[in-house]
């Protein structure tokens, strides 16, 4: 077990996992918020676009999206991020993780919007706020506070889903490194436990934190 730790850059691999998680979480939050606004907007076309996106992306396997980004977009459509294969795969993995989880962020936020009594939106309109203003000043702040718990679950799922990136990213990332260690040393329990422990360290405090934050931020009604 000692030589597995010293022969392989496990910390480096988990650092890549953290990078993937943070970058794609930011991307997913931005894109998911835009989609949620689409889905609650008064414009029919936007609502349709929002629900079309969510239903398509949410029901597509992430592995498929990952492979499509390289085999389809990079090779056939010729849209690479970089000529260097590993850089290109890294950024496409970030984009695909963000694109995929944006659908879940959108639904979490929409559920947050739905916790707000309809009277508040009506009150906002009646004092003369536009849709944009009522969204910014009244609805979204409360929606985010009400959606902390589902957003947290989405973030935890995202962190674990970064392992899917191993299908295009190689051994830079933790699941890919696990494949390499298994190839060289054979399957062994200590190796599995090290990687499982790594993910527990990443996600468990997050879960505890999210529960307390969601309790503190919940809108008292």
């Amino acid at each position: 077990m000692g030589d597995i730790l010293s022969n392989y850059d496990i910390l480096g691999a988990f650092w890549v996992t953290i990078q993937l998680s943070v970058l794609s979480a930011v991307g997913a939050l931005v894109l998911g918020t835009v989609l949620a606004v689409f889905r609650v907007s008064p414009v029919g076309v936007l609502r349709f676009l929002g629900s079309f996106y969510v239903n398509t992306v949410r029901n597509t396997p992430l592995t498929l999206l990952m492979l499509f980004s390289i085999l389809g977009i990079t090779y056939i459509l010729q849209i690479p991020f970089s000529q260097e294969a590993s850089r290109n795969a890294y950024w496409w993995a970030v984009v695909m993780l963000a694109v995929y989880h944006a659908a879940f962020v959108c639904e979490a936020l929409r559920s947050g919007v739905n916790t707000i009594p309809a009277g508040q939106a009506e009150a906002a309109r009646s004092i003369g706020l536009t849709f944009g203003q009522s969204l910014r000043e009244v609805l979204l702040p409360q929606a985010f506070r009400g959606a902390v718990a589902p957003l947290g679950s989405t973030l935890i799922a995202l962190i674990k889903n970064t392992t899917v990136a191993a299908v295009i990213l190689g051994t830079a990332e933790s699941a890919g490194l696990l494949a390499q260690i298994t190839e060289n040393e054979g399957a062994s329990l200590p190796t599995f436990f090290i990687f499982a422990l790594g993910f527990v360290i990443l996600t468990l405090p997050l879960g505890v934190g999210i529960t307390s934050v969601s309790r503190r931020l919940a809108v008292k009604r």
Binding site: V167, L169, G170, G176, T182, N184
Partner: peptide, 23 residues
């Protein structure tokens, strides 16, 4: 293929090789 012996050997033999790894 990700993590395969072949991938590791070619990285050793040709440092800086432009390697795409798949499952």
């Amino acid at each position: 293929v990700t993590g395969s012996t072949s991938a590791q050997k070619v990285k050793d033999k040709v440092p800086g090789v432009n390697l795409q790894e798949f499952g």
